[in-house]
Amino acid sequence: MRIACPFCGARDSGEFTYLGDASPKRPDAPIDGGTAVEDQFYDYVYLRDNVAGLTREYWYHGGGCRSWLIAERSTTTHEFKSVTAAPGAGAAKAKQAGER
């Protein structure tokens, strides 16, 4: 399997590490958020859509340029539809996660 790193081009999957679903966003965590924030974090950390089909997911090109990537990939065919850089890869200046 090869993954097209937006910086390095197509590379053997052995250079990459998989993290998981890129859809969940880390919730804001006010210090006094109480159990409501726990609920949000529980959802963020533990619950997954785990779809059979196209997903957005995090890959890390740790065996290469050390960029975090967001790939659109099918879990049924393993085909990559797109691979883009995480908002903060390189010297990119983003106000917050998700901006690009």
């Binding site: 590490t17 998989y18 059979a52 997903t55 879990t75 049924t76 393993h78």
Partner: peptide, 13 residues
């Protein structure tokens, strides 16, 4: 293999 999959097959690594 390390990535989410429903494909019932894996890769060489």
């Amino acid at each position: 293999d390390g990535y989410n999959s429903y494909a019932q097959r894996g890769n060489m690594p």
